[in-house]
């Protein structure tokens, strides 16, 4: 059984078919990348897995069960965490608080015990903090722990968002362009982290990325998309040399002639 499986998923916005009959499966323990030119439908697929969009037809299975009956806020509880292309952090809160929000799916207290801050809630807070500190140590975020997001540079925000997703302790991590806007050094860090997320933490990664160096260095399998359709699936090397992929990126001769 695959961890995540998309079966003939199609999504239409009005007359536009954003995702057209796409099927693929992400196996447990692998790093899987979606690549393709802008508008290929990569982020749209993420948003369908997050349940922000509902597919027009087809099914999405997680651990063998359909998630289409779930509300967006129930997805994290299943063990699917994500980051966003344009960073969606809680601006007026500190790094620590942002990451603690990631522990929300592990909340066992209710509003009454929290209102009274019972010893149980206190113990829970310590437990949440411990889990968050692990993510902070892993991502070297110690210097920023108490900083407000609003004042942080772009690169750090990207890392904080990844840390917040890790705090969920997910089975599947969706990374939407983890290296976009980062420097070469920062991108290298991201590559190391993704390696460790897979090998040390045992979390499966599904990512959207344009940086082919990053993709070929960390990904096990790659799915290339164009205009919402599946082009090629295979190892990074296979996909990069696939003539259909080259054509989609560079444009075909016939198109230029036309």
């Amino acid at each position: 059984m695959s961890l995540l499986e998309l079966k003939n998923v199609t999504l239409k916005f009005g007359g536009l078919t954003a995702v057209n009959d796409v099927s693929f499966a992400v196996e447990e323990g692998e790093v899987f990348a979606l690549v393709g030119p802008n508008g290929a439908g990569k982020s749209t697929i993420f948003n369908m897995i997050s349940r922000f969009y509902t597919p027009y037809s087809g099914d999405i299975l997680f651990e063998g069960r359909s998630i289409l009956g779930k509300a967006p806020h129930e997805i994290a509880g299943l063990g699917i965490a994500r980051t966003f292309q344009n960073i969606e952090l809680f601006e007026q809160a500190s790094v620590l608080q942002n990451m603690l929000v990631g522990r929300y799916t592990h909340r066992r207290s209710n509003f009454l015990t929290e209102l009274l801050f019972t010893p149980f809630v206190r113990r829970e807070e310590h437990r949440h903090r411990e889990a968050v500190e692990k993510a902070i140590d892993f991502l070297d975020l110690q210097p920023y722990r108490e900083k407000l997001i609003a004042g942080l540079p772009y690169g750090v925000r990207k890392v904080v968002e990844m840390g917040r997703a890790l705090a969920i302790q997910p089975k599947l991590l969706l990374l939407d362009e983890p290296a976009s806007g980062l420097s070469v050094e920062e991108t290298q860090d991201v590559a190391f982290w993704i390696e460790d997320i897979k090998k040390v933490m045992g979390i499966t990664v599904l990512m959207v990325e344009h940086d082919m160096h990053l993709v070929s260095s960390v990904c096990d399998r790659v799915l290339a998309l164009a205009d919402g359709k599946k082009l090629a699936l295979g190892t990074p090397r296979e996909v990069q040399t696939d003539p259909r992929v080259v054509e989609a990126y560079l444009g075909s001769d016939t198109e230029e002639a036309a």
């Binding site: 929300y104 509003f111 801050f117």
Partner: peptide, 27 residues
């Protein structure tokens, strides 16, 4: 007590980004 517990953080999350709060499992 609310401010320092998960509910208070959920409030802040909803205030700053609803979309991201949903992705964190907050209704």
């Amino acid at each position: 007590n609310i401010q320092r517990s998960p509910l208070g953080r959920a409030f802040a999350a909803v205030r700053d980004s609803e979309i991201s709060a949903q992705a964190m499992g907050i209704n």
